[in-house]
Amino acid sequence: VPHGPMPAYREPACDDPETEQAALAAVDYINKHLLRGYKHTLNQIDSIRVWPRRPTGEVYEVEIDTLETTCHVRDPTPLANCSVRQMKEHAVEGDCDFHVLKQDGQLSVLSAKCDSSPDSAEDVHRVCPNCPLLAPLNDSRVVHAVEVALAASNAQSNGSYLQLVEISRAQFAPLQAAAVYVEFAVAATDCVAKDVTDPATCNLLAEKQYGFCRGTVTEKVDGAEDVTVTCNLFQTQPVTPQPQPEAPTPVAEADALGLAPVVQPEPEPLEMI
């Protein structure tokens, strides 16, 4: 019997494979439960403690830093194929605290708390002095640019009328004061774009089909607007029920990254927006 107090927990190295396994389970959980925005990828493991759990198993108390990728959360592209948002594009990081249970070799998330924050303007301009910064998503110029871009996309489309799901990202071009770059998520409706006279009569498809658009709206000196927009619909994914977190005493925590609370009865993933 060792002398002295024994720590109740153990501390493997942050780059230890077992720590990384728990961290990757946490990142997977983030991306399956994000309500909006972009998928995140693991950047750094900050700390790790492993607690014994009665009657069996261990709980990994892990703190991780993540970075935003360019893949929207509804984009079925595997995370490994998603690019990290570069600093010159105004990167966004996530700071997350997780409790991950390992039992019988299986990892499951007990609690999750994440905050996200954009890089500072100073950092962005240090690597790219003229690069645009993120703009507030509720700015009237942003909302207007999204409306104009979506209308232009629908006007040119031979397919379904697309409805706005969320404004995901926006930037004001610094050298062209009147240019607004926007990224937004859309969903297909049961209307044909060219035939729509009253969008309020259009309904989302029963089997939801989401897409993503990028557009730039530039106001010209005569007051007219130049619009460039491209929209892509994602391949529909088979709906699979998400595992419920195994939480004896689950923690519901508000977060700024947009995660669904873990104690919330889990709807189908496509309905979580």
Binding site: A13, L67, D119
Partner: peptide, 29 residues
Amino acid sequence: KGVLPGTPAAGGPGPVIRPCPGRIRYFKI
């Protein structure tokens, strides 16, 4: 007490292993 040449003395300077935080995969902001 003496040590063999090339053998780090006990408690002497050596590579410091920092268990945490872990490596940065992309960049730190």
